[in-house]
Amino acid sequence: MSGAHSSQTGVLGHDHVFLGDRHRRNEQRTWLVIALTTVTMVAEIAAGTFYGSMALVADGWHMSTHAAAMLIAALAYLFARRNANNRRFTFGTGKLGDLGGFASAITLALIALLIGWESLVRLANPIEISFPQAITVAVIGLVVNLACAWLLRDDHAHHHGHGHGHSHGHGHSHVHDHADHGHREHKTSRGRDNNLRAAYLHVLADALTSVLAIFALAVGSLNGWLWLDPLMGIVGALVIARWSLGLIRDTGGVLLDYAPEGEDLPEEIRAVIEANGDRIVDLHVWQLGPGHHGAIISLVSETPQSPSLYHRKLAQIRELSHVTIEVEPLAA
């Protein structure tokens, strides 16, 4: 193989923007949810103080914790977008959402712990409940949280990949070839936005506690069962804890470049590259951001081809946004 250096446009100036295709939309909706939650929080605290309702005041401050938690998601979106072209982030800022999601998951776990602890204390030391007032507050909270959940729903499964590959061919000399980097649209579950998912789980957790509270208060008011309300609190805490652990597992896996069980992208790459007898001897695949993956591929071949040829073959795998290929001749 003769040595050559590609002079294609953009070889040295390609970008590393690996944000989700709905990054700005998700950011705007997260800020909108924070505003809605904050307005409701202020209204509840003001009304509770004016009318002497501790239930309203308590729920208002409870909503403030979720607003603060969702602020993590909003700031992660903002920072990732503003620093998307910052060259100090050598693989872009696509993982900022997973970092924000991980922090939110920890916060969600702490909220579950606090709900569980308070429920246990209430179960051991029941207090008198103003059932009509408490049900009204729970219904208000449920309506607001359902509206927020609707805003944060992830209803779009299409993502754009930035197809810029870095190909290194090793024969008797180096071959550097950078393929085109155009936008590609694809549909994949690999493009899940964990930052949006974290914000969604926060409002879903609040909605769950409202539903359980309404049930417990309605039944409790009919039978005088003060213990049912804290019992439902414990049930809610367990469910929220389970959600938070799942989010910690998924976001932590992305941050540590862990390939989750059932991830078939490496097998797809092997199937494409090894279809004509070439053999992959080293393969690294990791997530760069929602819907974006990077890959480093080292292969041996009896008839080595230009790295750009292998890159064109991999173009059918739309999740691959950044590819480095090393080609070596198969030893006799």
Rank of each mutant, 00 (worst) to 15 (best):
287 Q>R: 15
30 T>H: 09
140 I>F: 05
162 H>Y: 14
81 R>W: 12
28 Q>E: 10
93 T>R: 07
203 V>P: 00
135 I>W: 14
63 M>R: 09
247 L>K: 08
194 N>S: 03
305 Q>H: 11
307 P>I: 09
314 L>C: 04
244 S>T: 11
252 G>M: 07
102 F>L: 02
256 L>P: 06
109 A>P: 00
250 D>M: 06
43 A>K: 06
266 P>I: 09
71 L>M: 15
267 E>R: 11
293 H>S: 10
108 L>S: 00
62 H>C: 06
223 N>D: 04
164 H>L: 14
114 L>W: 10
302 E>C: 04
10 G>R: 12
124 A>K: 14
197 R>A: 02
198 A>S: 15
3 G>L: 13
294 G>A: 15
268 E>N: 10
178 H>G: 00
136 T>W: 12
188 T>L: 05
22 R>G: 02
52 G>T: 14
27 E>V: 02
303 T>W: 04
52 G>P: 12
156 H>T: 00
286 W>Y: 13
71 L>H: 05
7 S>A: 04
204 L>W: 06
2 S>Q: 14
87 R>I: 05
201 L>I: 01
275 A>H: 09
59 D>A: 15
266 P>S: 03
327 V>G: 02
326 E>R: 11
207 A>I: 11
83 N>A: 03
148 C>Y: 05
184 R>D: 03
23 H>W: 14
246 G>N: 13
64 S>I: 13
127 I>W: 05
225 W>R: 08
269 I>R: 03
36 L>R: 01
6 S>M: 05
60 G>I: 12
40 T>M: 13
224 G>K: 11
189 S>V: 12
210 S>W: 09
244 S>G: 08
188 T>P: 02
258 Y>M: 13
211 V>T: 03
281 V>A: 00
212 L>N: 10
166 H>M: 07
209 T>V: 15
33 V>I: 09
291 G>Y: 12
190 R>C: 03
100 G>M: 08
39 V>M: 11
199 A>I: 05
202 H>F: 10
196 L>S: 01
181 H>F: 06
62 H>S: 12
238 L>V: 15
78 L>W: 11
77 Y>G: 00
303 T>L: 05
244 S>F: 09
174 H>A: 02
197 R>T: 05
109 A>D: 01
259 A>V: 14
56 L>Q: 11
257 D>T: 06
191 G>N: 10
18 F>C: 02
56 L>V: 10
35 A>N: 08
77 Y>A: 01
192 R>M: 04
209 T>K: 11
266 P>M: 07
145 N>E: 00
218 A>P: 04
194 N>A: 02
133 Q>A: 15
217 L>V: 13
129 I>F: 10
130 S>C: 07
289 G>C: 08
232 M>V: 10
221 S>R: 14
227 W>G: 01
243 W>N: 11
22 R>I: 07
64 S>T: 13
49 T>H: 14
14 H>V: 00
163 G>K: 14
263 E>T: 06
148 C>P: 01
148 C>E: 07
118 E>L: 02
67 A>Q: 02
149 A>N: 04
314 L>K: 13
228 L>D: 01
69 A>N: 11
304 P>C: 06
311 H>W: 08
242 R>C: 10
126 P>Q: 10
105 A>I: 08
201 L>D: 00
318 R>W: 06
320 L>W: 13
313 K>T: 07
38 T>R: 09
282 D>A: 05
267 E>Q: 14
181 H>N: 01
324 T>C: 04
214 I>L: 07
20 G>Q: 11
21 D>M: 08
59 D>L: 10
247 L>C: 05
